[in-house]
Amino acid sequence: MGGRFGDGAVVPEPETEVFHADWHPRALAVTLACGSLGQWNIDASRHARERLAPKDYASFSYYEKWMAALADMLVDKGVLTPDELAGGRAVGPSPLADRKLTRGAVAGVLARGGPADRPAQIDVAFAAGDAVRTRRHAHNVFVDGGHTRLPDYAAGATGRIVRMHGHHVLPDAAAHGLGDRPEPLYAVAFPASELWARPEHPRDEVVLDLWQSYLEPAT
């Protein structure tokens, strides 16, 4: 939705306001706890939210999207049956129960996180200052309609490499069970005038983190 018109004002809120309804923290916690079952990765869970029906994506609140996507993934992976979900009752214990996130394990799991960098042999093609152009279409090359992290607004745009972050898991592959396929990841700066018909200021820019396969040399 980057660049879209019509969304109205951004409404600031106090720093003390962390959640906006009683069930929001619960939704966050259930999602994190289910992630620990190891049935999907962060890219698959992002894709599960993106592939909600567009009218649902537009009308659901933030955590409603999380819950709808979580329910979809639990059924897709066979963790719950559609009947269990619809009936609200479990039919027997799960074979994954030994992976349950326990209270005692929470601090360690949150502290360890899930780093996305991987050892890889792929040559680094670009250096800081190099001019690069993004793919013409923001699409997944492996799966039609699949997950990608190139936003539409930055497709087919020319920018320059700011820095290399290391080799990172390629979400386009990882979201679809195609392995990590790590690639060099770069911060790429685009002049606002390259992205928008009416940039606010001649020196403004937008920087995106983009994988090497999203980019080609620009002359």
Binding site: A33, R89, P93
Partner: peptide, 9 residues
Amino acid sequence: ILTEKGLID
């Protein structure tokens, strides 16, 4: 449901 299935604490 997830608690009943032993998947959530």
